[in-house]
Amino acid sequence: MDNKIVEKIQFSENVVKLIINSPYIARSRKAGHFVIVRVDEEGERIPLTIAGSHPENGTIMLVIQRVGVSSAKLCDLNVGDTILDIVGPLGEATKIHKVGTILACGGGVGVAPMLPIVEAFKEAGNRVISIIAARTKDLIILEDEIRKHSDEVVIMTDDGSYGNKGLVTKGIEDIVAKEKINEAIVIGPAIMMKFAALTTKKHNIPTQASLNTIMVDGTGMCGACRVSVGGQTKFVCVDGPEFDAHLVDFDEMIERLGAYKDQEIIAHEKHEHKCKSKHQ
């Protein structure tokens, strides 16, 4: 049945991978596309970049991090449960071409949407170097899958609990020091993308960033997702989600991502309370 969860893997306390039945999207999605998901009648519409698909089985893979009430509800779903609404694939697909050497930098759950992009660049005949970065070892996800499609993989953790110690920027510097990079793509938390972009800019490496902003409809209707790119307002949902990372106003994006922070905290506390009282 459509939108049914057929597989669930708990990556860490707050991150899960779901394999979901969605035959049309499984067939039509390309690297870089995202979906909008509404978990139940009360749910918010949230954008999630597609981490992969299996067209023959009619399934798509989503990786979800618990941040708000709706994403928490998604994380708590189990195999056999159904997600109320999934629509997509949305956004413009990644422009995949053969350029030489690609540096793909994924931070946190950003590694999930990075996976199909790495796969596609590799398939197009590029040399692909991937950096997987996270705060600590437990938050490193999809390492095997990324390795399968990369020529080289560098793991960076803030605390040094796995791979190299340091931020993604250090990983970039180390790689740039030893070989020529033709193009880069960065996906992850906005703050990580900001500094990764500054680093690649220093080395004149054309860089794309895949943005994950607040959205309501995801089809160009609301404008909640607007970002400034090179001084011009763009809609992430229809013009993106990928943009020239060197032109994106990340500071503005970071502030806009926090637009509903106060409401979210209240809602989250209420949700936790509701869950607790349910279990009592």
Binding site: E42, G43, G68, K73, V216, M221, C222, G223, A259, A267
Partner: peptide, 29 residues
């Protein structure tokens, strides 16, 4: 125009009309 709390009418109305944002039982703010 991209400052926080400047919305398109589409966003503002969609949140309330379609997503029931004014109702506390719904997740959309």
């Amino acid at each position: 125009e991209n400052f926080i709390n400047i919305f398109s009418s589409n966003e503002y109305l969609t949140r309330v009309n379609l997503m029931n944002a004014a109702n506390d039982n719904f997740d959309t703010p």
